[in-house]
Design a protein around this nucleic acid. Structure first.
Length: 114
DNA sequence: GACTTGACTAGAC
DNA sequence: AGTCTAGCCAAGT
């Protein structure tokens, strides 16, 4: 019977949990898109779920390094979190051009910025 | 187990 | 460049 004995070890960390690990692995001064993170977490199409995971905003998680594919913050610019995110990114050396981030510079894999 | 929701993305208009 | 639609996936109810 392939009834798969349910065990905690078999369950493993949920996708969201893995997202936290990936996001936490983003070096300062760089940003990653939801799709990028989703892909690193093992679900290339679960970009939405990444945002959902960020919504939880767990402590010690550099959620501010997560931006959308356009290099812009997905949070409302007038929200406290939105302002905080931009402030944190600028504090890490991220440059905002026209209100958006150049993923070609700060995106993962980019040597620039180091 | 089906329905709803959401910090997404890419394509079309 | 801005807006709308469709596809996507996981978590919560």
């Amino acid at each position: 019977m392939r009834q798969r004995v349910i065990s905690v070890a078999d369950e493993g960390p949920s996708f969201t949990e893995r997202v936290y690990t990936v996001v936490h692995g983003i070096p300062a001064g760089r940003v990653a898109t939801y799709g990028q993170i989703a892909e690193m977490a093992g679900r290339p199409r679960a970009a939405r779920q990444v945002g959902y995971a960020m919504h939880r905003c767990p402590a010690n998680l550099p959620w501010h390094r997560v931006v959308n594919a356009q290099g812009r913050l997905s949070l409302p610019a007038d929200s406290s979190s939105g302002l905080a995110q931009r402030r944190l990114l600028e504090a890490e050396g991220v440059v905002f051009i026209g209100g958006r981030i150049d993923l070609a510079i700060h995106g993962l894999g980019s040597s620039a910025g180091d």
